[in-house]
């Protein structure tokens, strides 16, 4: 499903964010990506989603070579991926409902269909009663869940989450982890990054440890 082979990502100026990384993530697997900030976690997730391209090496996602993909093909790759951003990237000029609908509108779903699916996604994260609110009125944890609802609404086969538990208190973070595990249980491949490995230890998932751009398993 996700296959990295000798991937190097070097930025202009010579800084190497990823140094010769190779690994594989199976279909339906849930993998935690850990490391200090600046270890290259975000870069790695960006490479999977085609937001950045590797300097060398190959990144295969669903058999597609992401680094070599035509610009015009990238949107279609992303429609199969749910992205959860560290800074949420919610739109505050529209309601909770319309935030969740965005991926469906982009894919051209009919109004009724989009509305139905968006409600289901909001219900899944417990935000259905707040569908008409502006996201600015949601708490940090609720905004995180809204971001998750938007990432799963179009039923992608891969979920990528960058520090989804970053700013949440412990109980809330556990809830969010449970949510990801429930998606994983219905077959979604989940990759999530965290800088706080401590509370992940009791969970039975494979951990990829990044340290200064290299993998240390």
């Amino acid at each position: 499903m996700i296959h990295f082979s000798q991937v190097i990502k070097r930025y202009a100026g010579g800084y190497e964010a990823l140094k010769n990384i190779s690994f594989e993530i199976e279909d339906g697997e849930m993998v935690l990506l850990s490391g200090h900030s600046g270890a290259g976690k975000s870069t790695l997730l960006n490479l999977i989603a085609g937001i950045e391209r590797p300097t060398s090496g190959t990144v295969l996602v669903n058999g597609q070579n992401v680094g070599a993909l035509n610009r015009a093909a990238i949107p279609y790759l992303r429609r199969n991926i749910g992205l959860i951003f560290q800074d949420h990237k919610l739109l505050f000029d529209r309601s909770v409902m319309n935030n969740v609908r965005l991926p469906l509108d982009i894919a051209g779903y009919s109004h009724q269909d989009a509305q139905k699916r968006a409600r289901a996604a909001l219900d899944r994260v417990g935000l259905l009663p707040k569908e008409k609110l502006n996201p600015i009125h949601l708490s940090g944890g609720e905004q995180q869940r809204l971001c998750i609802a938007r990432a799963i609404v179009h039923r992608p086969s891969i979920l990528l989450a960058d520090e989804p538990t970053g700013n949440l208190d412990h109980a809330y973070a556990e809830d969010i982890m449970d949510l990801f595990e429930s998606f994983n249980q219905v077959g979604v491949t989940v990759v999530l990054s965290t800088h706080d490995e401590g509370f992940l230890k009791q969970r039975p998932h494979r951990i990829l440890r990044l340290k200064q751009g290299g993998l240390s398993q």
């Binding site: 989603a49 937001i51 015009a72 949107p75 279609y76 790759l77 992303r78 429609r79 991926i81 992205l83 951003f85 990237k89 739109l91 000029d93 965005l102 991926p103 982009i106 894919a107 938007r150």
Partner: peptide, 16 residues
């Protein structure tokens, strides 16, 4: 800009 950036990240084509 925010809307454009987010839309692109979640799979909007340039045409869209």
């Amino acid at each position: 800009n925010d809307e454009i950036e987010v839309s692109k990240l979640i799979g909007a084509t340039n045409t869209f």
